[in-house]
Design a protein around this nucleic acid. Sequence first.
DNA 1: ATGGTATTTGCGGTTTTCTGCAATTTTTTT
DNA 2: AAAAAAATTGCAGAAAACCGCAAATACCAT
Lengths: 249, 249
Amino acid sequence: MLKKERHAFIMHQLNLHNKVLSNNLCTDMQVSEDTVRRDLHDLSFGGKLIKVHGGALSLSFSEVPFSSEKFYSHKNKKVIAEKAVKLIRNGMFVLTSGGTTIVEMARCLPPQLKVTFITGSIPAAKEYLMHPNAELIIIGGKILKDSKITADAEAISKVRQINADLCFLGINAIDIAHGITENDWNVVQMKKEMIGASTKVVCMTISEKLDTFQPFQVSELKQIDVLITELNPDDNKLKPYSDAGIYVL
Amino acid sequence: MLKKERHAFIMHQLNLHNKVLSNNLCTDMQVSEDTVRRDLHDLSFGGKLIKVHGGALSLSFSEVPFSSEKFYSHKNKKVIAEKAVKLIRNGMFVLTSGGTTIVEMARCLPPQLKVTFITGSIPAAKEYLMHPNAELIIIGGKILKDSKITADAEAISKVRQINADLCFLGINAIDIAHGITENDWNVVQMKKEMIGASTKVVCMTISEKLDTFQPFQVSELKQIDVLITELNPDDNKLKPYSDAGIYVL
DNA sequence: ATGGTATTTGCGGTTTTCTGCAATTTTTTT
DNA sequence: AAAAAAATTGCAGAAAACCGCAAATACCAT
């Protein structure tokens, strides 16, 4: 294993678990403790991670020194992302919205996976480009500055021409009565089309957005196939949704 | 086995496995270690792969554009970028290609400037999004993984519908005889359209690419309005171009 | 075809980098 | 406070990179 490969491997592990143990890395990469230590030292020197006794931590946690709120929601999104990537199979065409949860998912993709992603989100696109085996199709159009995605008439008409296997939506509000709701009219239109363009629809959200709603409806619950949160699937909060026929992960 | 063949072989292996070992290549291609090393060096210099101890890795491993060797060219690109932004006026519609020089320009934009950018480049788009007053329109389509821009039929037909005030092109080769040339067929088509879609065309390149050429022509010199390099405008190397009627900055 | 030019290639010797080992120091844990 | 785990340091063998040179090869114009 080459030095740079090891570095990439370490960073990947770090993106996945937010922490690595030197011991673990030794056995995983089949090198001596010293080599691992030196790798960690190099990466730490380059500001890519934080070295601690016995291993290293991901930067994303220390970037904002003391914001426990961010800390937990990020951690939760990571959990969601890890559940989500398991749904993706080789050769699939996957349509995705924007949002931090989606970006997190892009970072969790196993490197061998061969998938074609279709998205109008620039931050997500940037992540997909890092992946060695992912193909990428961009939905063009005028960018909404606040959500960093394309969502104008052109983008919507493009989505209409697509038939994807899977659609991942990061959502902002969901409840039994109103289904999925949003506060941005353009985003709503876009997501509606995305749902229509995909065989299966997967919604991802942190649990605090469960049982909330916003002005505009994106879709009814019955159009959703899978709902992913950071909670355990048999958590009480999720019962109403699984009762409504959604496969809860 | 000829040099070009070997290069092609190496790139092929790299696309397949994302990594190659010098030793392996020696035996596969039946040449000495030095030759392999020189091949790797050439390809690395051309930005086609990342050379590491013991072999090379596919570009998808690279996360850091500022890695050692590219330091100087980065400095030059900053100089170019600063000259370029001076050409942009409030209210303009600006079409841009991809490439590191363009990204550098995006970083140099004065914050008060109100401009609409139109691009198919994801890295450039990400930068434009950081700008407080820039609007952004994305040209959609399938992404070329190596250049990280959209350049398929769809993207080209979109560009054809545009009338921009200014077009910034990061170029890979320019000389008096062949004009602007490229080595990627799709990129060539895209840039051709971009030139046609703009009132004024600005080309940017580091001086080491002056007086070089590549397989496919993007445009004749006369279609270019402005040429920007890191050199002083009255440098001798630039004289042929200003003589050809180009405004040299 | 041919001869000259320029490029490319392989080799020997040297320098640099990488990696694992052992001894020592620091940190953590009990 | 002592024991255990991890970090640091120096070192040495091996592998790889680098440099200059001479031979071989490809290229070009005649």
